[in-house]
Design a protein around this nucleic acid. Structure first.
Lengths: 155, 155
DNA sequence: CTTTGTGCAAAGATTTTGCATTGCG
DNA sequence: CGCAATGCAAAATCTTTGCACAAAG
């Protein structure tokens, strides 16, 4: 799975969106919020809060742990990042806008393989229609053993 | 979605399984473990730890919070309950053996609608084959607005 | 009897919050 | 300027752990 870096233009766009959303809510657009948002967006994939806090500390971005948590919640409420999954005692976030895939998660080594299957997406839409349910996003995770662990464990 | 109660026979069977598994691991089968296990199994669907702790307290089952946590982890390792999902700050467990369905989760009211779609299951198997991945269990969750909240919010 | 389990309270880990101060709009 | 955001440290949650005692096998 190739991860192309997000373009400068794309990022600018997203930050603009974020700014608008934040202002619409009567909140303020601060340097901290901008930088935290950018850090998150750059995470193409999954991330943990602690990881983010460390990254921010390392880059000398002036934002306290409390601010990171608070900002994270705002960004979540605005829908830029997705609800959390918890696996093996680690809480993992995902960036919604990058999330056009589902996951195979190895319960042995923790590896996450991404995939995308259009047919499944279609079936999901069908189900939502059946239940008159308006989907915002979804996640599909299959837990099991990856190829390597299978060999190692001989199963 | 109808929830038939688990039969006495079924329960006995499961407890027996649990006992065997636990002994195979060189662990001991204690009254606390049995009772906690039964409480969990009776939960046809989703449950939170705190809920379980309270239920146990209310029923005067002699098991401390620590024992509940410890037992929960054993039961999880043995595969009777599934990895955790975290949504809206609540950590939710699921009983694997009851879990033959997927979920529509309303992000507004928190309602959980269960569904099962054989086609999706088949497609998942196909994908696992493609990646030489051995599936143990999966979860598919679609987040969005349920019929009622749609009407209420007029979307 | 030996080894593991239990309860308790304390320690860890993670996330939230009160308050004085700073800074966006 | 006024109201919201920030930083800090303290508080609130959630979960694990050390230790002395109890109980399973």
């Amino acid at each position: 799975m190739k991860k192309q870096k997000i373009s400068r233009k794309e990022m600018k766009n997203l930050v603009e969106q974020f700014k608008n959303h934040i202002r619409l809510k009567g909140l303020k657009f601060t340097p901290q919020r901008e930088k935290i948002f950018k850090e998150i967006i750059r995470t193409k994939g999954h991330f943990e809060i602690e990881e983010l806090v460390q990254k921010i500390k390392k880059k000398n971005i002036p934002a306290s742990r409390a601010t990171v948590y608070r900002t994270l919640n705002i960004i979540k409420d605005l829908g830029f990042i997705e609800e959390v999954i918890k696996f093996k005692n680690k809480t993992i976030y995902e960036v919604s806008i990058h999330h056009h895939h589902d996951h195979l998660i190895c319960t042995n080594c923790g590896k996450i393989i991404e995939f995308h299957e259009e047919e499944i997406e279609k079936l999901q839409d069908k189900i939502c229609e059946m239940y008159d349910f308006l989907p915002k996003f979804h996640r599909l995770e299959i837990f099991g053993l990856c190829s390597e662990c299978r060999k190692k464990l001989k199963v």
